[in-house]
């Protein structure tokens, strides 16, 4: 019990940190998803030029660590004179980074639909816009939901990296507490537990979605 004392004193501070983590992840998820859908459409339907640019973007983003990009923007942003609060700078980078992964998830969903679905929709005289809206997307999004949730979990974990460039969220909060209490085991394990609760819940939701999508097909 005495070992847990530092944790018991500081858990509320850690919870506030977790709140910031969720805020950051939440702020990044929305643009990442929106951009991911757009990029997936470009990948499937875009002209060769657009697709080539997209491939380069995907290659770069998936081959460079997020931390490098975060640090890069963190040092670079003040120099360009753009007055962006660090929080939003970080959210922007994470959105652009995860949009790439999301777009691959959505693309896989779209491409995994049997050709006959496209054929049937087209044969009934549907224009591409209508076909996407009522036939392709409802199915593709259902298929993409489980790996999408998986990417969201990854995004939540990635927020821990912003602590390295000095932004405050759960990981930074726990570092501060450790420096003060010199009890790394308890505090970091406590932080790990909080992350676990958030991520595992999301992961369970993802598995629920996976089971549901199998039933309908």
């Amino acid at each position: 019990m005495k070992m847990l004392a530092p944790l018991l004193h500081s858990y509320w501070y850690l919870f506030r940190g977790a709140g910031m983590t969720l805020l950051m992840a939440g702020a990044a998820v929305l643009p990442a998803t929106a951009l991911g859908v757009v990029l997936a459409l470009v990948h499937v339907f875009g002209r060769p030029m657009a697709r080539a640019v997209l491939q380069v973007y995907l290659f770069v983003v998936r081959g460079i660590p997020l931390l490098v990009l975060l640090t890069f923007v963190y040092y670079l942003l003040p120099l360009t004179g753009i007055d962006l609060p660090p929080f939003w700078g970080v959210v922007l980078v994470m959105s652009l980074y995860y949009a790439a992964f999301m777009s691959e998830v959505f693309r896989a969903g779209i491409e995994s639909l049997p050709q006959a679905q496209w054929d049937a929709a087209r044969s009934l005289g549907m224009t591409r816009h209508l076909m996407l809206r009522i036939v392709i997307f409802p199915q593709a999004l259902r298929l993409a939901a489980p790996p999408f949730v998986s990417q969201c979990v990854s995004l939540v974990k990635a927020t821990s990296l912003v602590s390295i460039v000095g932004l405050w969220e759960l990981t930074m909060a726990s570092r501060e507490v450790v420096e003060r209490t010199l009890a790394p085991f308890q505090i970091f394990i406590g932080a790990a537990l909080i992350y676990f609760c958030i991520c595992y819940t999301l992961a369970l939701y993802g598995r629920y979605l996976e089971r549901r999508s199998l039933v309908g097909h």
Binding site: A116, A120, S123, G125, Q139, H217
Partner: peptide, 17 residues
């Protein structure tokens, strides 16, 4: 013009959702 032609395929025809 596709409205004037109906076609039925071998499988996975119907919209499952």
């Amino acid at each position: 013009s596709r409205e004037t032609i109906g076609i039925v395929f071998q499988s996975y025809n119907l919209f499952p959702h």
